[in-house]
Each structure stands twice: as C-alpha cells, then as structure tokens.
C-alpha cells in the first residue's frame, strides 16, 4: 500500500514545496536583474546590491532592528525559560490558569491588538510616572519581549517535559541544591531549546512590522517599517537584493544548525552505545 500511493504523495510534496519556494526564488532571481522594472529581465547585474549598501536609511534601520532583535532575544530567552520552567515543573500554583493563558494567547493574538494595547499602556504610564520618556528602542524591545517570551516558553516547556527527570532527581539525591541542579544538569540539557528559542525570538523581532509601528516613536524606524513604506509605493529592486541577503543568511544559519545538531546526535548515539557496551561487560 505504501508504494502504490507513492506518486500521489510525491505530487503532494512537489506541489506544496513549489508553492512555498517559487515566490522566494523569484525574489532571489530578480535581485540580479539589471532592469529597474523588477519583473522584466534586462540582463545579469549586481547593481542593486551596491545601491542597497549606499542607502543609509535602510542601513540605519537595519542596525536599529538588529540591536532591538538581539536585546529582545536575550531578554525573551531569560523570561521565557523561567516561564517554561514554571509551566513544566510546577504543576500547581495560584493563578496557573491565568499564567498559561497569558503564555498561549500572544501566540495567536492579532498583532494590531497587541500593538495598540501596548502603546496605550506606554502612553498611560508616561502620563502617570513619566516613564517611558518618549518611545523608541526600549519600548519596541519591551513589546517584542512580551510577544516572543511566549514562543521561548513553549519551546522550553516541551523540551523540559520530554526530559528524563530522573537525572535531576539523581543529582538532588547526591546532595545538590535545586539551583545547582538547574545550572549543572537542566540548563545544559535544554540548551538546544534555548538556542532555538533565542533565534526564533530574534527573527520574530527582526520581522515585526505591526507592533513596532505602534510602539515606536519618531526617529526610530525599524527595518520592516522602512521596507513597508518603500514596498507600498511598488516593487523596487534593492528590496529584492535585501531579501536575497536575508534568505541566504537564514538558509546558512539553518544549515549550520542542522549540521551541529546532526553531530551532537551522532555523538549522543555513540555515547549511548558505549554506555550499553560497558553495561554488558
């Protein structure tokens, strides 16, 4: 039965991946187009990459976005790890339902609502306490952290619940304090989850247009905000060049992560084999 359905399955795969990748590949393809009309081929050229690196507006925005994304990812990873730990390890505490709700709701909440509500909060606290003084990098970072800590929490939680708890119990039986157990046993084991959580928080922040538009102030335009205002006026080839750079970086990152993970997995398998071999002897 498995083989009979194979052509059908193959066509599903081909169709699905064609749908996912043709638009991205078309972006890459036309970034090397000499013509200003993005979709009319005028010969090979890397002119638009040069133009991109002369565009200080885009470069400034990219630098701002990268800083926000890095700060956000670090903060969200810390908060998200704590939240994931609380969800996975403490099955009962007061207000757990509300806590779970506040973790999962941001995952699906329409961005316009999150953005508007955070802006109104910042305006209200500025009136009441004088904080934050104007909006910019700090407000965008806080807003992004609130959104992305949920993603980190979910990743960390699922990693923790698949973790063999007997390792932690063994360490505690041997007299380690809970904090030490966490730092020496739990943290190293969940570190892949922390890395992917950090990267996810980083990319979500780097990509967010709607929330940033609400909570940013004058003079702090993030990269998506600059791209959006350019794209609204129509296609422009330097955006294609920018897209190509971003796609290549992401692909490179994913390949590196994949290779590292494969190596670790092989090493783990080898350790397991050696452990079982020494058991047998």
């Amino acid at each position: 039965m498995k083989d009979k359905a194979s052509p059908v399955r193959l066509s599903f795969l081909v169709f699905g991946f064609a749908f996912l990748y043709i638009p991205i590949l078309s972006l890459v393809f036309y970034s090397f187009n000499r013509s200003r009309l993005v979709t009319v081929w005028g010969g090979f050229s890397t002119e638009w990459y040069g133009r991109l690196f002369e565009n200080t507006q885009i470069l400034d925005a990219a630098w701002l976005s990268l800083r926000v994304a890095a700060m956000n990812a670090t903060g969200a990873t810390i908060l998200g790890t704590l939240a994931g730990l609380a969800l996975a390890r403490f099955s009962r505490f007061r207000g757990r339902t509300l806590f779970t709700g506040m973790i999962t709701a941001p995952l699906v909440m329409p961005e316009v609502i999150t953005g508007l509500s955070l802006l109104l909060l910042f305006v209200a606290t500025e009136q009441a306490f004088g904080w934050p003084e104007g909006r910019g990098v700090s407000t965008i970072t806080i807003a992004h952290m609130t959104l992305t800590l949920s993603y980190v929490a979910v990743i960390v939680q699922s990693r923790l619940s698949s973790l063999d708890i007997s390792l932690e119990e063994a360490a505690m039986d041997l007299g380690a304090r809970p904090a030490k157990v966490f730092l020496l046993i739990t943290l190293p084991i969940i570190s892949p989850a922390l890395v992917s959580g950090w990267l996810l928080a980083f990319t979500i922040s780097l990509d967010d247009l709607v929330i940033a538009s609400f909570v940013s102030g004058p003079g702090s335009s993030t990269l998506p905000m600059v791209i959006f205002s350019k794209v609204r006026l129509g296609v422009s080839p330097d955006i294609n060049a920018l897209a190509t750079i971003m796609v290549s970086l992401v692909t490179l990152g994913v390949i590196i992560a994949g290779v590292v993970m494969l190596r670790r997995e092989r090493a783990r398998q080898r350790d397991l084999r050696m452990a079982s071999a020494s058991d047998a002897s």
């Binding site: 078309s26 972006l27 780097l206 998506p224 296609v235 920018l242 796609v247 990152g253």
Partner: peptide
Amino acid sequence: WTSFLLRVYAWIG
C-alpha cells in the same frame, strides 16, 4: 524564518 514582509512582497512581483 525568512521575513514575513518580504514573502508578502514576493507575491506583488
């Protein structure tokens, strides 16, 4: 993992 905005932009082209 690639930009949402740029993926929407791709469809304009």
